[in-house]
Design a protein around this nucleic acid. Sequence first.
DNA 1: CCCTGATTCGC
DNA 2: GCGAATCAGG
Length: 226
Amino acid sequence: MSWTDERIATLKKMWEGGATASQIADELGGVSRNAVIGKAHRLGLKARPSPVKANDKKAAAKKAAAPAPAAKKTAAKAPAKPAAKPAAKADAPAAATGAQSSVPSQPLPNPTPDLPKIVSVGPGGFLRQGPGDQQAPIPPAPPRRLVPAKPSAEIADKTSLLDLSDKVCRWPMGHPGEPDFHFCGEQVNPGFPYCVEHCGRAYQAQLPRGARRPPPPLPFGGPRVR
DNA sequence: CCCTGATTCGC
DNA sequence: GCGAATCAGG
C-alpha cells in the first residue's frame, strides 16, 4: 500500500487524536504498526505521549546518552544475527470491536468545559457525541437508555462507501471495517464535502488569538467512539 | 508475556 | 520514502 493523501490525512487525524499506532495501522489496513510510526515520524508529528518515553527526567538524560549506545547497537547488529524471531504480526481481526478494549486515555485537556454537550442523532438514529464527551461519566446511575437499540432500522439507511457522492456528506461515522461503519449522508454544504454541521467540525474557525482552546481533532477524534 | 512508541538502516 | 528489525519502557 502507498501513502495516499487520504491515508496520510487519516493517519494524522488519528495520531493527533490519540489513537495508538496499532489502531491506526489497523484502520488503514495494509500497513504495519511500524509503518505507521515510521510515517508519523517522517511527517514530523512524533511528539506524543509514549510509554517508553513517559519519563520526564530520563528523557533528557537518555537523549544525551543516546549516541553512544547507538554505535554499540549497530556494531553488535552487523556481525551476528540471532535470527529466530517469532513474528507477532498476525493480529486476529476476529474481535475487531471488543479486542482492543483498552482505550487510551484521552489526553485532551477538557476541551469544552462551558459548552453544552454536543449530542445529536444522525440519519440512522444512532447517537453521536463530541470527542470531549467520550468518557462522559455517568456513574450516578441515571437509568436512561440513550440508544434505541434498533439494529435493523439502524442499518437501514446507512450511507455506505458506495453511496457517497458529491451531494452527500462524507463525514465518517464509526470506524472502517466495523459492521456499522458508514458516512453521515446528509446533504452537503454546497462547495464542501460535508454537510453544514460537519463543516463546522471539519473547519474550525480560528478565534481571535488568546481566546482559543485546544480544538477537538476530528474525525476519528477518539478511539472507538459510537 | 503483552502492549506502547522510537530509532536505525537496508532497501 | 518506506518499513522490518530492533530497542526500550510500562
